[in-house]
Simulated assay, not measured.
Amino acid sequence: MPAVPIGKDPERDQETSTSAADRLVEAAHAEQRTLAQQIAISSAEKVVAEARCRSLLAAQDAAARRLSAARGAARVAGQTDDHDRRAAAHAAVAAAQADFTRVTDAAIEELRGITQAERTRLEGLVEHLRRVWTAREAADIAVPPPDRRD
């Protein structure tokens, strides 16, 4: 029987080392599962954000069409001798311009928020991906994949 140094139990050390390796592997799997969940959530949030962006663009396009129509009506009214009609047309242009500006400014502000939220989501995914890589690396050191075992 080989000599065992005092205070050393090879079977116990192997068991402890295996359970530690198992914990590292499980931690890596848990990080991977969490990342997969975060990716799914992020994908759903992106779909919602893209739909909202399309909605904002449609609202801005509608406001631009109203402004264009008001300007066209003002050009036609400007060719008449009806002062009240010209004044009403110019008032309609001013109102349409104010509406277009309001809609555009609101869309820009909301798009900034959507863009910032997307950036924050992506930064979170990258940070979690780094945690997955770190956990996998620790697990691979503890239990190397078959192609790296001696």
Rank of each mutant, 00 (worst) to 15 (best):
Q32E: 10
T16L: 15
A69V: 10
A51D: 08
T115P: 11
K46A: 02
I39Y: 04
A40E: 14
T101H: 02
S55C: 13
D81G: 07
S68G: 04
G7M: 01
V25A: 00
R86N: 09
V47F: 09
R52D: 05
I6N: 14
R23H: 03
P5H: 02
R131W: 00
E31F: 06
A117P: 12
D84S: 13
A62G: 12
D105A: 05
R121S: 11
A117C: 08
S19F: 13
S19N: 13
D147T: 13
I39T: 11
R23G: 09
R66E: 10
G72N: 07
D140H: 09
A98M: 00
D84A: 15
L111T: 10
A107K: 01
E45S: 07
L57Y: 13
L125M: 03
L24R: 11
T134A: 12
R130F: 11
D140L: 05
E109P: 08
V93S: 00
E15T: 13
Q79W: 04
A117G: 10
A49I: 10
R148A: 11
E45N: 10
A138I: 04
A92W: 00
A92Y: 02
H83Q: 14
S55A: 14
H29V: 12
R12P: 08
E31C: 05
A87Y: 06
A3N: 13
G72D: 10
P5Q: 04
A51F: 08
I108A: 07
L125K: 01
R121G: 07
A107W: 01
A87T: 14
T18H: 15
D140N: 15
V48P: 07
A74C: 10
V25K: 00
D140G: 13
T16V: 15
P10Q: 02
A74R: 07
S17H: 15
S19D: 13
K8W: 09
V25F: 04
K46D: 04
A138R: 09
A36C: 08
A30P: 12
V47Q: 08
V126P: 13
S42C: 01
R71K: 02
A139R: 01
A58Q: 03
Q38W: 02
R130M: 11
A88H: 06
R33N: 04
A51Q: 08
A106F: 03
V103E: 05
A20G: 11
R33Q: 04
E11H: 15
T80F: 02
T16G: 15
E31T: 05
I108H: 05
A88T: 03
D140M: 09
